[in-house]
Amino acid sequence: MDRPELAAWLRLLETPGLGLAGCRRLLAALGPPEAVFAAEPAALKALAGPKLMEALSRPPENLPALLERTERWLAADPCHQLLVLGDPDYPEPLFQTADPPLLLYLSGRRELLKAECVAVIGSRSPTPQGRDNAASFSAALSRAGFCIVSGLALGIDGVAHEATLQAGGSTVAVLGTGLDLLYPERHAALGRRIEEQGLLISEYALGTPPLPANFPRRNRIIAGLSRGCLVVEAALRSGSLITARLASEAGREVFAIPGSIRSPLARGCHELIRQGAALVEEPEEMLEVLRPAYPRPKPVEAAPEPTPGPDGEAGLVLEAMGHDPVGLDALIARGGWPAAQLSALLLELELEGHVARLPGQLFQRRARG
């Protein structure tokens, strides 16, 4: 893309009030951005109305600085690239959605745009069991050949990216900021690893800060890139449910991991299941849907002996817990242990990985794989 073409794209996308729908209307009627700005005022007025015609008649004030920033960014690293709608490398699944981005900023392995992708998403404040589930599903799906797509957010997103990289798989992070601003800062190092081993994508201009409205918008890209969408944990009102809805509307498979009826982070998944999402407990259940011919692991002749659980009083505490989150007072009522003894037993179970400590002085039994 030469300088005049880049300047025309940035000018079009930065025109106040135009939006993607307005841009598409002009591009469909007049051709590439250079042709839009070379068009007669009467044609622009007929297509966009008098106010937008006026906005299109003068470049945005930030255009020179944005053009310079973008050119510097592109020149800084060969893996920094731009992709416009209609390019041969534009991902076909994303192109087929109702609202595909017109321009994407890329940093990393461009070839992953052609990969077979699955989105793994969920709460920014997951339970320890939710983190374990996100890691095990992401690693298994990546070993099966899928590229894992998520949003680099805290919680499930970060776990999915990290587990995929550790498994030697491929991952794509879709950002809600400009690619020169890795957000959140706690995931800056993870973002740089994805940039080296996977792919970062954003539709937002360089320098775009983490504006709240941008993150729900970027979710349509996560959904659009993916053949399926797995929700690990989610509250009833969450961005994960927005992504799942967008995936469903785009005709993609939606999967949800169930949880305790006592857990607020399970309610979003349960709602998705009520709406028709596939309930999954193992990665193989997703693979049977996404890739029916995928070979299931062969059963071994003799299954290994299960790892023995704790015995004695610690074992009784674990049995009394069940599988729902439970407080100290409830456990005392169930088993009659003195508070000091119970606290010591819970600490022992926590250190051994049998129990997770949750916010609000709650404890939950933890599945061990």
Rank of each mutant, 00 (worst) to 15 (best):
E92Q: 14
L30P: 14
P212V: 00
S226D: 07
P184F: 08
G176K: 12
H270Q: 13
F95C: 01
A75M: 03
E288M: 03
A278M: 11
V159T: 13
V317F: 10
A55V: 00
P325V: 02
A98R: 15
R227F: 03
S263Y: 07
E350T: 13
M53S: 14
L141E: 09
G198E: 03
L13S: 08
M321R: 12
Y204C: 07
H187R: 15
P128T: 01
A277Q: 11
I121F: 07
L26K: 09
A35P: 11
L106E: 04
C229A: 13
L106C: 07
I332N: 01
E301M: 11
L279H: 02
G224K: 09
E305W: 02
A153S: 11
V174A: 04
T307Y: 00
C229E: 01
S248I: 00
D87Y: 08
L181Q: 15
E34T: 13
L331E: 07
S260P: 11
L141K: 12
A256D: 05
V172W: 06
A98N: 03
L175Y: 10
A48Q: 07
G158F: 02
V355H: 10
P258I: 02
P41D: 06
L66Y: 00
P325N: 04
P292W: 10
F146P: 10
V118D: 01
V174H: 09
R217H: 05
V231S: 06
Q96P: 01
G130E: 06
S57A: 15
W9Y: 12
R252V: 04
G312C: 08
R218T: 03
G335E: 14
G122N: 08
S107Q: 15
N219M: 06
S125F: 06
R192M: 08
E249R: 15
P212C: 02
T127M: 04
S170H: 14
S202T: 07
N214F: 14
G360D: 09
G169S: 05
M1R: 06
W9R: 11
R110W: 01
P359A: 08
D329S: 13
P283M: 08
D87G: 00
A340C: 01
G158I: 03
R220G: 12
G22L: 03
A356L: 00
G369S: 07
L74W: 14
D324I: 00
E5N: 09
C117P: 09
P308L: 00
M286K: 06
A39Y: 12
P50F: 06
A98M: 03
A339E: 15
D87W: 06
L347C: 02
L12I: 11
P212S: 10
Q275L: 14
A119H: 09
A160T: 10
P93Y: 05
L272V: 04
T177R: 06
G168Y: 08
S260N: 05
A135S: 15
R72D: 08
L66S: 15
E68R: 13
K298Q: 15
D99C: 00
G168C: 02
L20M: 02
L265Y: 02
A7Q: 14
S136F: 05
G335V: 06
E253F: 12
N219A: 00
A205L: 13
G145C: 10
A320K: 01
R124F: 04
Q364M: 13
L102S: 11
Q81W: 04
A48I: 00
